[in-house]
Design a protein around this nucleic acid. Structure first.
Lengths: 336, 336
DNA sequence: CTGTTAGCGCATTCAG
DNA sequence: CTGAATGCGCTAACAG
């Protein structure tokens, strides 16, 4: 079943069929309908490779990632796939080993082999200066999800600082005055945003920022455990801990339960991301929901827009939602 | 940079370059080396679409899934990507809405649009009779991961029955005599295998199978909670519960902690799959590790083998590993 | 608004 | 063991 057959049945030329299929202008409505009818009757589907070859387009977008969070990635991927389906594109996956120069060579290999029309960058490689520079040289379109600096870039982001601010406000409203924070991995812009939101939340509540209540983490469970131990060993430990993501928050809970503390009785805990785990641990976790599916979808649509039109593609912002669950409660002192 | 340029530099014809690149026979070693050198110098990479069009192959495999577990899928995907990279294939993703006739139309649409050379089926659609029948009609190669019936199929599976047997043996060795089981979703072959292993484990220990200790679940957290409540409300509740996956096991733990029970003090719990969550909940979960990455990789290699050689492709078996962690301990009665 | 011609980059005949 | 010619199915440029 080729375009020629459709053309014959509709009594037009190949090119006219091509025009209709590619939504080009300059086709009379009447012939357009006729062509579409023939397409439908013959169950014609354009040949992917032939289209790519002749049009010098691959109809491929590649999703680049080195983020270990399966739930985050599957969320984003679902959105990317949804957008691709609409625009007749296909998605390629490109897991990257690590940061550093290797990132560039791996991406170059991908570009050489698969010739994607555009790239989607996820954190933290969305901030790899080496990569960004190379992509600019290569002049390959790309969109970024949650890039650290958003000016003059296309993609999508969320106001994570404000979300962290809200989380802290929630803790403050429960009477907490000593609130600890486990910072995320330094390579992620999110870590900075969430720390800033934490500080702003304290400031708004008239609380003084105490550096000893802030410990560095790495976004993984173990660093949450370690961070919590440090904080709970303080002479004046916090009554609440805001971990910069759910994995670390679950580590914090683990550490607290381990030493016989009650959550939220003795310690309130909150996280960030709203992974499925956050509702499955005990107690269920108060956290921030990030609309990963939408982010993937919108970033892809903006990427495709920028591919199709020279001036297309914007930096979009998506809303977050607080998920108040069982891991946060009134501060112990407030109970007295 | 085209094959023609390489041919010119190496002083041979296009066809000879093509032969070298596709590892065909009948090329003198000397000329082979000369061609390879030219390829290297020119940084030549074959054009994906042109190769597909001329060779009538898409070099695409599609991974079909309707399994909601992000960790499972990312594991499998990682393996598929690894195998694809070796064989110069690309992977497409095809999330399927649900079982029933829609599965078939969705897959037909995929085949029409992307013309994949082969398909990879994951549970539970790997057992969709409708789909299997249609694929046979279409004569499109496919490999299956953990299919219910493995005779005359290619792909990969694990001895889940034996793993479940081992888990029960572990509980028995801790002194448990009343062991409950939360069955998985009925659409999954895994549910049956794990239930069978449970029964065999009891039998081996000389314990009588008690239907009241077995409740139906759906592989999700909520059904684990519900199942545990049913079991713990029994007049003679179990001292251990084997849930057919980790999500349900975390639900079981949740239900137990909720009513003030200690895990494993009052109740031992184990799961299946070894998702990252299993080491992040409190207490950490005793479970079975499934090598999802290897399974994806091996299934893909077998699929590609069956595409390349008419008689290629086998049904492979991969080993499991027990992960003994903190959610299982001596039976309460055994302590007395 | 529509059709004709040429060629994308490669693999595949079939000769030598 | 190697090479020259042909065409995969489609779109682009140009002609009408």
């Amino acid at each position: 079943m080729r375009i020629e057959d459709v053309a014959a049945m509709a009594g037009v030329s190949m090119k006219t069929v091509s025009r209709v299929l590619n939504r080009e202008l300059n086709v009379r409505e009447e012939t357009r309908v006729r062509v579409l009818k023939a397409v439908d009757k013959l169950k014609y589907v354009p040949h992917f490779s032939a289209r790519s070859l002749a049009g010098n387009k691959s109809f491929l977008v590649a999703l680049l990632y080195n983020n270990p969070s399966a739930n985050y990635l599957m969320g984003v991927m679902g959105g990317v796939l949804e957008a691709c389906a609409i625009e007749q594109y296909n998605m390629l996956l490109c897991p990257l080993d690590m940061d550093g120069p290797r990132v560039v060579t791996q991406v170059e290999a991908l570009i050489g082999r698969s010739q994607p029309d555009g790239l989607l960058l996820t954190p933290p490689i969305t901030d790899s200066q080496l990569l960004l520079r190379r992509l600019a040289e290569l002049e390959i379109p790309f969109a970024s999800i949650s890039p650290r600096v958003q000016a003059r870039r296309i993609g999508v982001a969320m106001d994570e600082t404000h979300a962290a601010f809200d989380i802290v406000a929630h803790l403050v409203s429960l009477g907490h005055r000593r609130i600890g924070h486990v910072v995320g991995h330094p390579a992620h812009g999110a870590s900075g945003w969430r720390l800033t939101g934490y500080k702003q939340g304290l400031e708004r509540a008239g609380l003084k920022f105490d550096p000893s209540l802030v410990v560095q983490g790495e976004f993984d469970f173990e660093s949450g455990v370690a961070g919590a131990r440090t904080l709970l060993d303080l002479r004046r430990p916090p009554t609440a801990i805001f971990a910069a993501n759910d994995d670390m928050a679950s580590g914090v809970i683990h550490a607290a339960l381990e030493r016989g503390m009650k959550v939220p009785g003795h310690l309130s805990v909150c996280g960030f991301d709203d992974t499925p785990m956050s509702s499955q641990i005990f107690p269920s976790l108060t956290t921030v929901h990030q609309p990963t599916h939408d982010m993937g979808r919108l970033a892809t649509l903006e990427l495709l827009a920028s591919i199709q039109r020279p001036d297309g593609g914007r930096m979009l912002h998506v809303p977050y939602t607080l998920q108040l669950r069982d891991s946060t409660g009134p501060a112990p002192s407030a109970k007295k």
